[in-house]
Design a protein around this nucleic acid. Structure first.
Length: 493
RNA sequence: GCCCCCAUCGUCUAGUGGACUAGGACGCGGCCCUUUCAAGGCCACGACCGGGGUUCGAAUCCCCGUGGGGGCACCA
């Protein structure tokens, strides 16, 4: 286990919404950095101009902040190894590409995309592996120089060894051995002068003194390439950790558009921004994500500080994990129950406000203990507690009708309840419950029937927080007014 | 097609040759509590992919299958 301060980075490309996968890698990066007293860095990998989408970078930064994974260095906070946006580091990559060419480890390539495509087609037709055919690898240097001077567009390709094997070491998976003949001369600098991921990431990780590279296992295929590039420069390698990928809930394959849409329909999402809006908490999301790919023996409900305490790279798991949204619900609800009343009040208030409700601070603080353990997501507070902030509630007549009772009986119950409660100087669970229970006893009706009618009358809904505690918060006058109205409704209907 | 990775309850996982009658969590089922809905408590169901080795002994090490995943771009 590392005791030296680790410098870790999350290096997303701003090509779409920030998703769960990015959040999880960022979490592990963050945990490792904090645990070792190191730094966590955000680097934006925006070298693919065609795929860059406006606003995506901001969404990543917002997402990380919402999650509480504040980076020590990044595009908007700066740092000693900036800039932290790859399009602003163009010259650095060009310099290093040139270094590689001079060392004989890379070469200019003038093949056009059209020719490359044609070569690939032919190779596939012959059932060969698609690979670069090496046309420009054997070009004489002066010939290449002449064509460059001529203004011919060119890329730089990395010259992979063609014999022997490459052994790359991954901390979770051990040595990964690849025959070099399987490898192929990849483009590291594009015609537009920007690097591909292969060059950019390696150069930046070195320049930014990254000690641990955590990334998805989709990078395993290019892993040998990357270590070859590092070695060509003669640099020390970071520790490589290839995390498992997330599978769709069925466990068959990665999340596709289809599953993503289905999740949204069910009230879930793999996008951080959506999760926030759906009422999930950073604590819940992080705890959930952390455990997909990290095993703890027991006590799996953890806050970030507790995760920092317990985190080790060695306890990460290499196998793919199916997304399980029910588990997200569980962790979210569990963390909501752990929040203090004041904390939860601050988190809930926006949801009430969003509904156009006028939130009285004192009422908010009083109702939270009543609804806290009933919430799965924060927005559930509307279902359970909106009535606390409404001037009037409008019960459905049919909700008012308790099973097995006729209209006369219903009206009688409501009326009697009104009489009992209106005789009290104040209504709370201490004063109101005993006489109401006594009435249930003497009336022959069930508690379920009597309290059911009262619940609907007072809260306007069949499911609510505890009745008498709720009435206490609503207040005597309002309660009586609402019960009176119910009596009216029942007598009419 | 080729290459690489992975493999314990339905799902996430613990397990690093004997403490395994394989532990925990989610979900599911039941019971208790209960004015609704939750929460909480208790109980149950439920897995080492298959076959060969190695070893006194294998979930754990090796090999071969099988299954699953990922990759084979001037995308990351």
């Amino acid at each position: 286990m590392t005791t030296q301060p680790a410098r870790t980075r999350i290096a997303p490309s701003p090509t779409g919404h920030m998703h769960l996968g990015t959040a999880r890698v960022a979490l592990y990066d963050y945990l490792l950095a904090k645990k070792t007293g190191g730094q966590f860095i955000l680097r934006i990998e925006d070298t693919d101009l065609k795929r860059t989408v406006p606003g995506a970078e901001q969404e990543i930064m917002d997402g990380l902040r919402w999650l509480g994974l504040q980076y020590d260095e990044g595009p908007d906070v700066g740092g000693p190894y900036g800039p932290y946006r790859q399009t602003e580091r163009r010259e650095i990559y060009q310099h290093y590409a040139k270094v590689l060419v001079e060392k004989g480890q890379a070469y200019p390539c003038f093949c056009t995309p059209e020719r490359l495509d044609q070569v690939r087609q032919e190779q596939m037709k012959r059932k060969e592996n698609p690979h670069y055919d090496g046309t420009c690898r054997i070009l004489a240097p002066d010939e290449a120089a002449r064509r460059i001077a001529n203004g011919e567009p060119y890329t730089i390709r990395f010259k992979m060894p063609q014999e022997g094997v490459t052994v790359a070491h991954d901390h979770l998976r051990g040595d990964i051995t690849t025959e070099n003949k399987q490898l192929n001369d990849q483009v590291i600098l594009k015609t537009d002068g920007l690097p591909t991921y292969h060059l950019a990431a390696i150069v930046d990780d070195h320049e930014m003194k990254i000690t641990h590279v955590l990334r998805g296992s989709e990078w395993l295929g290019t892993f040998p390439l990357h270590v070859n590039i590092v070695r060509a420069f003669g640099w020390d390698e970071p520790a490589w950790i290839h995390l498992s990928v997330f599978l769709k809930p069925s466990g068959k394959g990665k999340m596709s558009k289809r599953e993503t849409a289905q999740a949204m329909k069910d009230g879930y999402s793999i996008f951080i921004k959506d999760m926030q809006e759906l009422g999930f908490t950073p604590e819940g999301v992080l705890n959930w994500g952390a455990l997909m790919g990290w095993g703890v023996p027991e006590g799996d409900v953890m806050t970030v500080p507790q995760m920092i305490e317990r985190f080790t790279i060695d306890s990460l798991t290499p196998s793919p994990a199916a997304i399980n949204f029910q588990k997200l619900d569980h962790f979210n609800a569990t963390h909501i129950r752990l929040f203090s009343t004041g904390d939860l009040a601050a988190r809930l208030k926006p949801y009430f406000t969003r509904e156009g409700l006028n939130v009285r601070e004192d009422v908010l603080l009083k109702m939270i203990p009543l609804i806290r353990e009933r919430l799965t997501t924060l927005d559930d507070c509307i279902d359970f507690g909106a009535f606390f902030f409404k001037d009037e509630v409008t019960p459905n007549t049919e909700d008012l009708i308790a099973k097995g009772l006729d209209a006369k009986q219903l009206a009688e119950i409501a009326k009697r309840a009104y009489e009992i409660l209106s005789s009290l100087p104040q209504i709370d669970h201490v004063t109101a419950e005993p006489p109401m229970r006594a009435y249930v006893q003497s009336s022959g009706f069930s508690a379920n029937q009597v309290f059911g009618i009262l619940r609907v009358a007072v809260t306007g809904q069949k499911v609510s927080p505890p009745l008498f505690e709720s009435m206490e918060i609503i207040g005597r006058d309002v309660c009586l007014k609402r019960i009176a109205r119910a009596v009216e409704m029942l007598e009419q209907g």
